[in-house]
Structure formats: C-alpha cells, structure tokens
C-alpha cells in the first residue's frame, strides 16, 4: 500500500497527515517531510496518525528523530490519532513517555 503524506498549516501549526503503512521502505518519505518542516523551524508540528494502519520500528525511529530535531529549537512535536496496534508499540517500547500523544486533533490543539 502506498503512503500518502499531506501537510496543512493553520495559525503556525503544521499538521502532517499520514495515510497508509509506515515501514522500512516508506518511512524515509515521512522523514523527508518532517525534516523539511524542522529545517524551517516550524514551531508546532502535529503528526496525524489516524489513517496509519501499521508502523514498524523504522517509522517510530523516524518520529523520534523528528522529536529530537524539534526539541533542539524548542519546537513542539506531538502525535495524535494512533490506532490501537500503533499505540501498543509505543507503550511496549515505553516511547509513550517521551512523546506527547493525544487521542484526536482537538485534544492535540488544546494542549
């Protein structure tokens, strides 16, 4: 399944909408999109994972890199809409402790 990534910017907040499966072969595409935003020092990057059915450890590692780069300029990097299986990977690897994770777009925006 192909990966689709779109971005939308609203009030200096960039939403990265990812659709499909993030795996070893598609995660470099996610990385490129996130790094483009990080290079521009986007103050708030919100990753929408509502339509991500599967994410392997390369996808998770890519998000860790995004968070790390964003932290360097004190930007905000948060995830929302994780499906159960994706959330489980974050929980079992204890990465839910280092990421801001929200159930939906509204809660991600509120915080």
């Amino acid at each position: 399944m192909n990966l689709e990534i779109t971005t939308e910017e609203i009030d200096q907040k960039v939403f990265v909408n990812i659709k499909g499966e993030v795996d070893l072969y598609s995660s470099p595409e996610v990385r490129k999109k996130i790094f483009d935003l990080v290079k521009k020092k986007a103050p708030v990057i919100l990753i929408n994972l509502e339509k991500v059915k599967y994410m392997d450890s390369s996808g998770v590692a890519t998000l860790i890199e995004g968070l790390q780069q964003c932290n360097k300029y004190n930007g905000r990097f948060a995830l929302y809409g994780l499906q159960d299986n994706v959330r489980e990977v974050f929980e079992l690897t204890r990465l839910d402790k280092i990421f801001e994770i929200y159930s939906d777009r509204e809660s991600a925006l509120k915080n």
Binding site: L24, Y25, S27, P28, S57, A61, I64, E65, T93
Partner: peptide
C-alpha cells in the same frame, strides 16, 4: 533498507532496549 544511518542507530538502540 534505504534507511539513513541516524535512523538505523535509533532502531538498533530500540531493539537492544527491547
């Protein structure tokens, strides 16, 4: 895989942590 080395390093540490 086409992964850059920085991603591979994180993946490696994740798997070792696991």
């Amino acid at each position: 895989t086409p992964q850059p080395d920085s991603t591979i390093k994180i993946m490696t540490r994740m798997k070792l942590g696991l």
